[in-house]
Nucleic acid binder design. Structure first.
Length: 809
RNA sequence: GCGAGAGUGGCGGAACUGGCAGACGCACCAGACUUAGGAUCUGGCGGCUUCGGCUGUGGGGGUUCGAGUCCCCCCUCUCGCACCA
């Protein structure tokens, strides 16, 4: 073995070895223990960045560790390869999106291989290939059959200059297009939707069983789904046949209604309101969080419970998107209604009194929104507000005035994109037959390659005559294809199923899915807390209901890694604080890059990048190399029970380190402290000079275990050192993870801390098994303790076995 | 505003069920080897100190023999949601 650590010379060699010997290929057969370790696949934007390095280093440690623990590990990688940047590159640089994408995947695959990640590349998935996206189409058709994919008119973000729809996240803060900076407008278009709301309840309830997910992620999903239980009530409108329907979660305040308010874009708003200028004024501050603007319609409604006549207003803060677009207003018990009512001089009627207090409309400064006792509420007066909710809802339903209703914040998922680089939606429009699904046997609907992307205006596919023209699958008359493509979140909603098996005639291999799913550990960024992770949970249930598998939840455990930041800010080109993984790997090697990414912070926290810290990680690897080199020829027999002195201490430290590293990985993947423990062991070994044969044996024993434990973090150097230790062996990645012996790890001496009144005053080395009585007498005989006691007996003595004695004087 | 999380040396971060605060690494200081050091090795490294100690985990109070850890109040920061009726 070389005397100096030269990562550039060894890393490529081991990468080739792993590849040639298919070390990380996982078999599909066998009844062994298996483990599915998955990291979010990247968008092939060109090069991997530090976020990828960190994400994939975390996953790789887990995968390699589980493999050493005897699991069959499925650890795949692929490409989220459809998407907008490919089209932009085409427009800006004249490269075809496919060429651009494939070139990027080739480059990035090479980068990932240079990082030494243990992927089973035979399972690679690329979503922009017909072999993959035909199954997007297949799933879409199954959803269409079930009424889960439907078309409706809806408002979208539209950029005139780019001639296309923008996703919400592609619209900048001031309503400008992220690409061309022109104004984005709302435009009504026919769009395809997937009916995720049909699963709203199940997705919500599923959050309960996701105990392996960070709580904040399930909380965000719960909030996103936004279920609320309430009641819909019809308020008759004077002079109108049609009642005004409202939704409320506070039926207990129904007796306190003093006006009604509706959204400015409510269908009745323009019908009822005479003051068109006022209506326009309200409309202009629709959704403005500061404002409380309203206009009186001139009409009145009748409270169906009380018969009271209440004015109907249009208010800017009432949203058409939620509930029925109209609300009953209770100024006494709703802060918005209170502010609105004050501004426009509307009555406040108190119907809930807090205990031990009496609210009066004249003196209230804010709405009382908490529970209390009902007053002025007919037969319901005197009830607690929580109880009253149920009773009043019963009454409303019994009288036929309304019905209980669940409302969700969650909207159906709009998947239409007026883009080229995506999955064509497999639908044909026929003048005779209407909306016709493309038959399965005609899939895939291929994305044509000869398109004009530079034209602007309409979507590229809509301009592609040969694509658009088609004969109707039902009546064979000329018809037109749907020219929208699918949101790329469709691609990423089921790719983890496709990794388990890639049959050419079916979307997935049910046997393999049931073998591997759910994913044991999923690792990725928090930015997908709702979007990708919610869509995948939805898709998984659809695939289940189609009958292809029995999985409910796709990801059993989720680890959301923190951002990589530098100089206090997220790495970005515009801030000029990016670290290029290529340079890093070229200079220090992949092992150093991995080690630092794992050492500098626990995975779920943000990681502050430090060039100096990287050098520290690099130095550590040099020290390990030098240590192994120095002792590579050493060996010797030893009897653990017979060890003494330094040799015994090293033996114990080795067992302690195995224990700590194993538990740190198993409990929360705290690699930073695991690596710190390996550094400690290395420091101890560096200071250990074995002089006897048993000592040399202990050194070798310790080095072997050090290398085994280092291997998931820094696999290349571990392979090389494993070989450097001499005897013929297989790849270190195929060696079993070391185990520890509690007995051997136990300290035989401890430093007893002696406190007086809780302050450390003395220390003494004592055998670890010393009894409490003896510890007490040792403590009391300490010079400082004797001084402090001055002959008097201690007030109290607390003995913590194996740790300390506190003498209270 | 609501919800969640976090505040520990110059920095990143350790500290299991309350029991030696600051592991490990970085930076820094001193020394060794050197023509040289931005290489390597050794040692030191929270603050104050009359060298006995004192003090210290955002601030204040409390429980306890003992609090970074538990309880109450306050401050700051980060993230998420933000008129959801």
């Amino acid at each position: 073995m070389e005397d100096r650590y030269k990562p550039q010379e060894i890393e490529a060699r081991w990468q080739a070895y792993w590849e040639e010997n298919e070390i990380f290929r996982v078999e599909s057969e066998g009844k062994d223990r298996h483990y599915y370790c998955l990291e979010m696949f990247p968008y092939p934007s060109g090069k991997i960045h530090m976020g990828h390095v960190r994400n994939y280093s975390i996953g790789d440690v887990i995968a390699r560790y589980k493999k050493m623990r005897g699991y069959s590990v499925l650890h795949p990688m692929g490409w989220d390869a459809f998407g907008l940047p490919a089209e932009n590159a085409a427009i800006q640089r004249g490269i075809h999106p496919k060429t651009w994408t494939i070139e990027n995947t080739n480059y990035m695959r090479a980068q990932l291989k240079k990082m030494g990640f243990s992927y089973d590349w035979s399972r690679e998935v690329t979503t922009c290939t017909p072999e993959y996206y035909r199954w997007n189409q297949w799933f879409f058709l199954r959803m269409f059959e079930r009424g889960l994919a439907y078309r409706k008119s809806s408002f979208v973000n539209w950029c005139h200059s780019c001639g296309t729809v923008l996703a919400n996240e592609q619209v900048l803060d001031d309503d400008r297009c992220w690409r061309c900076d022109s104004r984005v407008v709302q435009k009504e278009l026919d769009q395809w939707f997937l009916k995720i709301t049909a699963y709203a309840d199940e997705l919500l309830e599923g959050c309960e069983v996701l105990t392996g997910w960070p709580e904040r992620v399930t909380t965000m999903q719960r909030n996103w789904i936004g279920k609320s239980e309430g009641v819909e009530v019809d308020f008759p409108v004077e002079g109108l046949d049609e009642p005004l329907r409202i939704f409320t979660t506070r039926p207990d305040t129904l007796f306190g209604v003093t006006f009604m308010s509706m959204a400015a874009n409510h269908p009745l708003a323009s019908v009822l309101t005479g003051d068109k200028a006022g209506l326009q004024r309200v409309r202009e501050c629709y959704g403005d969080i500061q404002a409380k603007e309203g206009v009186f319609t001139g009409h009145y409604a009748r409270n169906p419970l009380t018969g009271e006549r209440v004015p109907i207003w249009v208010a800017n803060f009432v949203l058409m998107e939620y509930g029925t677009g109209a609300v009953m207003a209770v100024p006494a018990h709703d802060q918005r209604d209170f502010e609105f009512g004050r501004k426009y001089g509307i009555d406040v009627k108190v119907v809930i009194q807090p205990e031990g207090e009496v609210l009066a409309p004249a003196t209230m400064t804010e709405a009382y929104v908490d529970p209390g006792i009902l007053v002025n509420s007919s037969d319901f007066s005197g009830l607690g507000s929580e109880e009253a909710k149920g009773r009043i809802m019963d009454h409303i339903e019994g009288q036929g005035l309304g019905r209980r209703k669940l409302n969700y914040r969650l909207r159906d998922w709009g998947v239409s994109r007026q883009r080229y680089w995506g999955t064509p939606i497999p639908i044909v429009y026929c003048d005779t037959c209407g909306t016709v699904p493309v038959p399965d046997e005609q899939l895939p609907v291929l994305l044509p390659e000869d398109v004009d992307l530079t034209g602007g205006g309409s979507s590229p596919l809509a301009r592609h005559e040969a694509f658009v023209r088609v004969n109707c699958p039902v009546c064979a008359k000329p018809a037109r294809r749907e020219t929208d493509t699918m949101d790329t979140f469709v691609d990423s909603s089921w790719y983890f199923l496709r990794y388990t098996g890639q049959p050419s005639d079916r979307p997935l291999d049910s046997t393999q899915v049931s073998r591997w799913l759910p994913v044991d550990q999923y690792i990725g960024g928090i930015e997908h807390a709702v979007l990708h992770l919610l869509y995948s949970r939805f898709f998984t249930r659809v695939v289940r209901d189609i009958g292809l598998m029995e999985v409910d939840e796709p990801f059993r455990n989720l680890l959301t890694q923190g951002m990589v930041i530098k100089d206090g800010a997220k790495m970005s080109k515009s801030k000029g604080n990016v670290v290029d993984p290529d340079h890093l790997v070229g200079h220090y090697g992949a092992d150093t890059a991995r080690l630092f990414a794992l050492f500098a912070a626990p995975p779920e926290k943000d990681l502050e990048w430090s060039d100096k810290g990287v050098e520290g990680a690099h130095r550590f690897l040099h020290r390990v190399w030098a240590l192994v080199f120095r002792h590579s020829g050493n060996s010797g027999e030893f009897e653990p029970g017979a060890l003494e002195g330094a040799g015994r201490a090293i033996f114990r430290k080795t067992h302690q380190t195995i224990k700590k590293v194993t538990l740190d990985i198993d409990r929360d993947f705290h690699f930073n402290t695991a690596i710190a423990a390996l550094m400690e062991l290395t420091n101890d070994l560096t200071n250990f000079s074995p002089a006897t044969a048993p000592d040399r044996g202990v050194m070798r024993f310790a080095l072997e275990r050090l290398i085994l434990m280092l291997s998931p973090f820094a696999p290349h150097i571990a392979e090389e050192l494993w070989g450097g230790l001499g005897t013929a062996r297989t790849s270190v990645s195929q060696a079993p993870w070391p185990s520890w012996d509690e007995e051997a790890a136990r300290e035989d001496e401890i430093e007893l801390v002696v406190q007086i009144n809780g302050k450390v005053r003395a220390r003494a080395m004592v055998p670890a098994e010393t009894t409490e009585e003896t510890l007490k007498s040792i403590a009391l005989s300490q010079e400082k303790v004797v001084e402090a006691l001055r002959g008097k007996p201690p007030r109290r003595v607390i003995v913590v076995k194996g740790r300390l004695v506190n003498v209270v004087v």
